[in-house]
Every structure is written in C-alpha cells, then in structure tokens.
C-alpha cells in the first residue's frame, strides 16, 4: 500500500517541477516553487526522511519564495522610472 502513495507523490513532484520550469514569469514561478517545496516535503515524508522534509519545508515554503519575491520587487521597482520615461 505504501508504494501507491510514493508513486502518486512522485508524479505530482514531476508535474510541479515541469510547471515551475514552463512558467516564465518569476513572480508566478515563485508561487509554483513554493508549492513544489511543500510537495517535496510530502515526498520526503513518504520516503521516510522526516529531517529532510522539515528542512525542505523550512527552506522551500518560506525562505526561497521570500528571496525571489524581494528580488522581483527590487527589479520591478528599478524598472518603473524607465518605463514611465519610455
């Protein structure tokens, strides 16, 4: 029975990784990366690795998206005066 849950979560992780790569806009990609982090944590729990799941949750669901979103906001704010000028 525990194999079925591994297969389901593996396929979800593969689909989410594809979605993260196909999504070209960085802000929306951060959203998909956050969901990928949560799904990876579920996969690690299913593969009996709770420590790694905790680490992925802590890093993937709050830290990485926050860094990417701050970067997008800085570059979007930097671009604004030029856009008005254009």
């Amino acid at each position: 029975m525990s194999d079925a849950v591994i297969v389901v979560v593996l396929l979800l992780v593969a689909a989410c990784a594809t979605a993260a790569v196909v999504q070209r806009d960085p802000a929306r990609q951060a959203l998909v990366l956050s969901v990928l982090g949560v799904l990876l944590a579920a996969l690690f729990t299913v593969l009996q690795a709770p420590d790694v799941g905790l680490s992925q949750l802590a890093v993937g669901s709050a830290l990485t998206p926050l860094l990417i979103m701050l970067c997008v906001r800085k570059i979007r704010r930097r671009g604004r005066p030029k856009e008005d000028a254009r």
């Binding site: 960085p26 990609q29 990928l36 790694v52 570059i75």
Partner: peptide
C-alpha cells in the same frame, strides 16, 4: 530569458538531486 527565472530553474535541478539521493 530572465535571470531570476534561471535561478528558479536551478532550484528545480537541485530538487532532482534530493529525490535521487533519497
């Protein structure tokens, strides 16, 4: 075509190594 998107894709590459190791 956007460096922030490239960093996101690199994070996806890294998550592949987690899956393989475990």
């Amino acid at each position: 075509r956007n460096l922030i998107h490239a960093v996101g894709c690199l994070a996806v590459c890294q998550s592949a190594t987690y899956v393989l190791l475990l």
